[in-house]
Design a protein around this nucleic acid. Sequence first.
DNA 1: AACTAGAGTGGAAACCGTTTCATTTTTTAT
DNA 2: ATAAAAAATGAAACGGTTTCCACTCTAGTT
Lengths: 326, 326
Amino acid sequence: MANIKDVAKRANVSVATVSRVINNKGYVNEETRMLVEKAIKELNFIPNEVARSLYKKVSKSIGVIFPHLSNPFYYYVLEGIEALAFEKGYKVIICNSNEDKSREEEYINQFIKYNIDGIIIGSNSSLNARYIELNIPIVSIDRIIHDDVPSVTSDNITGGYLACKKLIENGCKSIVHFRGPSILLTVKDRSLGFNKCLEEHGLTCYQVDLAFINPEREIIATFLKEHEEIDGIFCDSDLIGAVVLSELNRLGRKVPDEVQVIGYDNNPLCSLLTPALTTISQNMFEIGKEAMLSLNTIIEKMELKDKHKTIPVELVERESTKKLVG
Amino acid sequence: MANIKDVAKRANVSVATVSRVINNKGYVNEETRMLVEKAIKELNFIPNEVARSLYKKVSKSIGVIFPHLSNPFYYYVLEGIEALAFEKGYKVIICNSNEDKSREEEYINQFIKYNIDGIIIGSNSSLNARYIELNIPIVSIDRIIHDDVPSVTSDNITGGYLACKKLIENGCKSIVHFRGPSILLTVKDRSLGFNKCLEEHGLTCYQVDLAFINPEREIIATFLKEHEEIDGIFCDSDLIGAVVLSELNRLGRKVPDEVQVIGYDNNPLCSLLTPALTTISQNMFEIGKEAMLSLNTIIEKMELKDKHKTIPVELVERESTKKLVG
DNA sequence: AACTAGAGTGGAAACCGTTTCATTTTTTAT
DNA sequence: ATAAAAAATGAAACGGTTTCCACTCTAGTT
């Protein structure tokens, strides 16, 4: 690999001049510039970004830490991040913390070692105070980890509210909320909205806690068997919704005529299920884009007006819900 | 941020000694080591990997380029890559080429600029000869891009064969193969195996070409409507399988009694469908792991015995297939 | 003619580690 | 006691780039 010295030698100039040419900065005679450019081409020279980053302490790359990649939510967010990052000239380094806090911290350390310009983190654990002190630009997704750390979250309260409203308006009387892990803020918020609406109508509901990604089929099956009166179901993820639909089908309960089901996320899977799943759509691409936008703002030391952004949700109606007449 | 000089000053030693301590290399007196370690802790010193990488020309990180992340296949592969990479101390940089060859090349250039140690690429386009000349360790996934570039592919030929065998053994007479984009090697290979088995039984089948990720529902619907005689369906992805099941359901055709369906990938989605989808399982995690293993072997300049690895597949039987009696 | 501003260029320091080599001190073997 | 080997340490070079500063030269101003 040719380096800047080789180019300088070949073009019969100093390295400083070559640097000025590649960075388009400072005075360079037009003829000299041509000479240098010719040498660059001939030697197939690519400036070494590591050396550059060493000097400038800026790497034009950002780190993303997600608890797992197998949750569709994250990769749609990722596509949003990537889209804007690419546009702004940032490389994206993606790491998988596996929900493991120590691994998360190890990755943050790596990022620091690599002069990373900023971090987007989708974490369920709270951030070590050390990192806030370090003053690296960080944006959190789907959770507010610290008042000083900007965040982008989905409007989970409204999400829960909308789902509940739809079920009640559709005539459901006996409702269950299959929730995700109740430690999560997102889950808490959805419950908040859901229960608020319930309350407004003088109703209550069952609550069952499940895993997000691999929902426990037996718990769902047992609950549904023991509660034949259930006619409205809200699930905290479409994956839970899919299992619920599958179990209802097994039990011979008709959806949406006997039971109505609403999922969460608007996973592409929804329209593949039978019946297609009504769901709360999170604009994941937008979440990613906004997070990257916030991050860019902090990196460039501009003022961030909206420290904690909330992205609106909407209900997407498919075949698993239906307004019951009478 | 403290640097190695600050540590040296604080511990009253030279930077060389500090370097020896952090790298655990060369002679260091036990007492001195303690002193240095104390200073490191006090100053919260984290060695700058950029400087390190500049000198050593090794970055302990690898780049992964995938055409998109929204295909579940890729993120399971990714988890395999990550698992081994983490173990071996590599950071993983993931890039999304969006099937765009120029973006792919841009990312490879970035990787070079960053002294990346190796690249795993899941590409549909053939690799520019330049990169092979550059002699960076590269491993390709799901495709053989060059005889000299090691690869890890799934045993697609056997996958196609197994699917066909199952359909025929189960009593299917009129078979259709809903294929992915026929430019892809994977798709070609599956057809190869599938048709071989067909031939062995003196049969032929329909072939319909579709997109992998967002299969065209109308094409599938039209075909199924026009071909009521179909009793066996092989799909090149589970997503295609899901749409097929949904359309069959809409047409009132019973699965598996009237039509049998086999998908491909063993996407978690399979067990959520009704009926649960029989599929050819690709061990994606294993593919990722093996790719990382090959890459590590080349990076460390050890001999790679198996240049082109093939990962076995297996048929996972669920509810969408059934041995017909009589 | 003397003076100044700006164009054009190169030398060298800086970024932050690693490594080589030389030197000193300690230990072991004879 | 002495030579030889091993342990411990620091000075300095190195990696590839950017940038500051100093310098030369030309053109324009009084």
